[in-house]
Design a protein around this nucleic acid. Structure first.
Lengths: 201, 201
DNA sequence: CAATAAAAAACGAACATTCTTTTTAGGAGC
DNA sequence: GCTCCTAAAAAGAATGTTCGTTTTTTATTG
């Protein structure tokens, strides 16, 4: 009686998903055919369908893999010293750019999230998590870095976490689409953002 | 109903493109079939193919229409008094949300722009234009609203225009994907952004 | 240690759809 | 007569999926 290590089976799934993601970054989800994925993975149709019920499941699984990686990258963070928002953004982006080899892939994921509920829930979950982590860093910075009172630091951080997340998303879009995008200038501007606390009361 | 004038022919094209855009917002570009578009437009296959060489041309034409509308909305702006950035963003978003009935459509366009050069060029052109307009408003605000010296106002505006554009893009993404997105909080935070001029020297 | 049996994984040609596009013949308004 | 359209059919290509077969892997037995 043969025994199958569940790990090996899982890693094969991730292998296929990784091959699929490479194509998704180039052609998008729908324009990537099963034949493409079969060729890129170096396997056969039957092999793929042994691991995934169909193309939809493969897409969702690939997206999950991608976002999960992102999530672990964020978890790994955490420092003793408060970090300035500008540096924080740079760290996040460095992480993303090493994990995701083509940032354009994120645009595909967001577009897909706009179309079906399941993708949207995954993306929402990871995005919200990312926002929370950002918020914690900001509280730390406003409190220990700028010397703000605790409850004021929390209020400001809560308000600005979404905004910084938006700035990150804007970076991804412009970096992918705009030919003459100046990453450093963008991040310099992001670093020069100061909350006007009087307006957040 | 049918007329002979070239305008009517053009307006019929826009009609078809508008019908297509409605579907693209729901299902994305590739998953929308010609049969879908034919049904939604209320016309026949022959009519559609009389106006467009094929699906690709229809997609690009529809995207162009969408972005062109956006461009005109921006052009229409221009006020005597300097406008605070926060209010500026609200005005822009109001414009976008009335012109584009489903913001998710923008996510589809950005994803498409990541995939093919032609879409990317269109999107880049419109985006850059939008950025320039933003920049002009910002110069005005920094100079006349905040009383900054001209050349400093220009430098600051140049640096921050991309950032504000990114904030807008982040709004679109989060508004589309995040279930519990708080639009007002996001825009309030955006309004509370103050450039730290010392960091932009 | 080899031989073997059984199960899992992989193959890949074939299949049934679905899709885009073209073509047909005809009708309505100017 | 000219243009724009309809309705339907169908060609031709591409797609997702299935399934009978073959290969590889694994545990057990002689």
């Amino acid at each position: 009686m043969p025994k199958v290590t569940a790990e090996h089976r899982e890693s094969r799934k991730h292998e296929i998903a990784a091959a699929a993601l490479r194509l998704f970054a180039q052609k998008g989800f729908q324009a990537t055919s099963m034949a493409d994925i079969i060729a890129e993975s170096g396997l056969s149709a039957g092999a793929i369908y042994g691991h995934f019920k169909g193309k939809d499941e493969l897409i969702h699984s690939a997206i999950s893999d991608l976002l999960e990686v992102r999530l672990h990258g964020v978890e790994a963070a955490g420092t003793a010293d408060p970090v300035a928002p500008g540096e924080l953004l740079r760290t996040f982006l460095d992480g993303i750019e090493t994990e995701v080899d083509d940032l354009g892939l994120l645009l595909q994921v967001w577009a897909q999230a706009a179309l079906d509920v399941s993708s949207r829930e995954s993306t929402d979950r990871i995005g919200s998590h990312l926002r929370r982590v950002l918020e914690l860093y900001l509280v730390d910075w406003y409190e220990r870095g700028l010397g703000m009172p605790a409850h004021e630091a929390e209020r400001t951080a809560a308000a600005f976490a979404s905004l910084y997340l938006g700035i990150l998303q804007g970076y991804v879009i412009q970096n992918t689409i705009f030919e003459s995008f100046d990453r450093d200038a963008y991040l310099d501007a992001a670093s020069a953002v100061r909350p006007d606390f009087t307006l957040l009361a």
